[in-house]
């Protein structure tokens, strides 16, 4: 390891301390206070709190809606992730086969990421609309009416939601993976081609292993994002989120902070948030363990 740092350990401190300070004071400390509410029955409008121990946690475990929200979370995480990374890798291979317009294409792929989720939901709301929606229009004009389903009814809405999620976020993961690819020196590829490797072979034998670190980062980040995803599913069904796509963050919001049919149970919301944090950390740890390997020396 770097001798210079071993000798000057004190250097590490000024590099690290400011971040730690800001992080602890303005995030960890409030977050712990918030999670602390989970041991209380607390409404949020006054200081009155009743200590109820672990009742909130116990209640959550037998709460139907908690479990169904969790299932929805997991579906988004699993199917969304599957399609996003599948597509991202496909784009990666394709990208390396073309010569022109790389910058433009990369930019366009990434673009949906920066549009605010509300606008994306309104856009796709119009596309999926069954009376004047674009999708139905296109299918009809191609003579494929029998493929038309009510895209946003209880049966199909998860599929539509996952499709929109994939469409929005695939560009982001593609760019991350691409930045990993960029660090692979050309010399490696050239020697592979000289030895007669096909693009597919090079992809699996060279590209994938060499971007494994970046890939891990991308996967872990997806796990976290998909489990905490709030705005997109929230706005997906107009402004009143339908219960068919209530995931855990939406449920937490409805419990403590919602309006219209607000429930005003901050303590219970906090308990569920604790569970969510634990679930996220479990997945993060598992995936980091599963995917960890030594950096490739080249």
């Amino acid at each position: 390891m770097s001798n210079s740092f071993k000798r000057n350990k004190k250097l590490a401190i000024p590099f690290l301390v400011p971040s730690l300070l800001v992080y602890i004071i303005f995030f960890i400390y409030p977050a712990l206070s918030g999670l602390f509410y989970s041991f209380f029955d607390y409404k949020g409008f006054s200081r009155d709190k009743t200590f109820i121990g672990i009742s909130n946690f116990v209640e959550a475990l037998s709460d139907k809606i908690f479990w169904s929200a969790l299932v929805i979370n997991l579906k988004i995480m699993f199917f969304g992730g599957l399609f996003i990374f599948l597509l991202a890798f496909v784009f990666l291979i394709i990208f390396q086969c073309i010569g022109h317009f790389k910058g433009t294409i990369r930019a366009l792929l990434f673009l949906p990421n920066i549009i605010s989720p509300v606008a994306i939901c309104i856009l796709w709301g119009f596309v999926f609309n069954q009376n004047f929606g674009l999708l139905n229009n296109i299918l009809t004009s191609m003579g494929l009416e029998n493929l038309i389903v009510p895209w946003l009814d209880p049966e199909h809405i998860m599929g539509s939601l996952i499709f929109v999620i994939v469409w929005t976020y695939v560009g982001f993961y593609f760019v991350i993976l691409l930045s990993g690819v960029s660090k692979i020196p050309d010399s490696v590829y050239e020697s592979a081609i000289l030895e007669g490797a096909s693009p597919i072979q090079t992809f699996f034998k060279i590209t994938v292993p060499m971007i494994w670190d970046v890939f891990t980062v991308a996967v872990v980040y997806w796990l976290i994002t998909s489990l905490k995803m709030f705005e997109l599913p929230f706005s997906f069904t107009g402004f009143k989120p339908r219960m068919e796509i209530w995931n855990l963050p939406i449920y937490i919001y409805m419990l403590g902070f919602g309006r219209n049919d607000a429930i005003y149970r901050i303590g219970y919301a906090a308990a569920i948030a604790v569970f969510l944090s634990i679930i996220v950390m479990i997945f993060v740890q598992i995936s980091r363990k599963l995917m960890s390997r030594e950096s490739i020396e080249y």
């Binding site: 400390y29 977050a31 918030g34 948030a273 996220v280 950390m281």
Partner: peptide, 13 residues
């Protein structure tokens, strides 16, 4: 910290 939903820290913040 990545796993903590920020909303839970809203009022304490």
């Amino acid at each position: 910290g990545m796993g903590i939903p920020v909303i839970i820290a809203l009022f304490p913040m």
